[in-house]
Amino acid sequence: MAVDRLNRSYKLVRRPQGMPAAQDFRLVEEAVPEPAEGQFLVRNHYASLDPAMRGWMDDRPSYLPPIPLGASMRAGTIGVIEKSRNADFPVGRWVSSHNAIEDYSLCDGGGRTRLVDPDGVPSVTNYLSAIGTVGMTAYFGLLDVGRPKAGETVLVSGAAGAVGSLVGQIAKMKGCRTIGIAGGAAKCARLLRDYGYDVAIDYRGKSYPELIAAIGEAAPDGVDLQFENVGGAILDAGLVTLNPYGRIVLCGLISQYNSEPYPLRNVWQLIAKGARMEGFIMTHFFHRGAEALPDLTAWVGQGKLRVDEHIEQGLENFLPAFLRLFEGTNEGKMILKLT
């Protein structure tokens, strides 16, 4: 029984300065909590590791409050209900929720919590990738914020990442020409072979002028829509090639999460070209998940949407697995298997 076990939990004990370090965290063991009326106890099996988690560690305004020092590291999880005092969430059901890097979590069914069916997808972990927040981020960010039209050119940075790989595939379904930017020959090969990108640009080893030239060569008629996951010099270079009335979708700025902001030189292009740059986060669209999930589930089931997941083993390995996101050494959506 759960009450006979200990609950391991990864706590934030110091605000990181730059790249997170081992001294910023502590792995502790606590008693497994008991659900109160209306609550249920989830045994977390998998946790989603995302770049956004780095921002939650800082004590500064954001779309979610910072993680308090001494609290467990916040994360999206999927697990099985072991005890329940909530009739809507019975024992034995799989549930997706926003919990923490810990073995057991108490939930009340609110927020992002939903029951999921492991038999309805190729892998239950898909609920943390293409059929979860990651998939909905790509779906709504591209289709609602970016509004691509058939025949347009779409430029995606971080194109081999969890979101970027899906954005490129969905853009192709909508009849767009796609250009992906990634780091290294292996990732660029995946863009062409696995995700259907028309052109792949390797940013590694390129100076800022060379990056602008590479984008210009890949998009001789300009870029209509830039889906930005990286920021910094890549975002700045993309501004130069943006077409009149083009759009930039700001999904992430992973290049700046552990460093000072990059000074953009080419924001003037938005004025000169009547273009727009719009940021978004998935919480803006979570209430519309019922619109996206049928499409995403069907595309995955029919093999139209390739899903790559990188699963690391062990709750105790949270930090090295998380840092792979910033080192660029993960091959697909980063997921930590807790059990």
Rank of each mutant, 00 (worst) to 15 (best):
R43E: 14
R43K: 15
R43P: 10
N44R: 07
H45F: 10
Y46R: 07
Y46G: 02
Y46I: 00
S48F: 05
S48K: 01
L49C: 12
L49Y: 06
D50Y: 05
A52H: 02
M53D: 10
R54T: 03
R54Q: 02
G55H: 05
G55M: 14
G55N: 13
W56P: 00
W56I: 02
M57V: 08
M57Q: 05
M57G: 03
D59V: 11
R60A: 12
P61K: 06
P61I: 09
S62H: 11
S62Y: 11
Y63Q: 03
L64R: 15
P66K: 11
I67V: 15
P68Q: 06
M73F: 06
R74G: 08
A75Q: 11
I78V: 11
G79N: 06
I81T: 00
E82F: 04
S84Q: 05
R85P: 02
N86A: 09
N86R: 08
N86V: 03
N86L: 09
F89C: 06
F89N: 06
P90G: 13
V91Q: 15
G92E: 12
R93C: 10
W94E: 08
W94I: 06
S96Y: 15
S96G: 14
S96I: 11
S97R: 13
N99C: 15
A100L: 13
A100E: 14
A100Q: 15
A100I: 11
I101F: 11
S105L: 02
S105P: 03
L106E: 03
C107F: 13
C107E: 15
C107M: 15
D108P: 10
D108V: 08
G109R: 08
G109K: 08
G109P: 05
G111L: 14
R112P: 12
R112C: 14
R112E: 15
T113I: 09
T113G: 05
R114F: 12
P118F: 07
P118Q: 11
G120W: 07
V121G: 05
V121N: 07
P122N: 02
N126D: 15
S129K: 01
A130L: 08
A130I: 02
V134W: 09
G135L: 06
M136A: 07
T137R: 01
A138K: 12
A138D: 10
Y139F: 14
F140T: 08
F140I: 09
G141F: 00
L142F: 09
G146M: 06
G146N: 06
G146T: 01
P148C: 01
A150L: 12
A150K: 14
T153A: 12
V154Q: 00
V156Y: 01
V156P: 01
V156G: 04
G158T: 03
A159N: 00
G161L: 08
A162I: 03
V163G: 00
G164P: 00
G164A: 04
S165H: 07
G168P: 00
I170K: 01
I170R: 01
A171V: 10
K172L: 07
K172N: 04
G175C: 11
C176K: 01
C176P: 02
R177L: 05
I181G: 01
A182Q: 11
A182F: 10
A182Y: 06
G183D: 04
G183C: 00
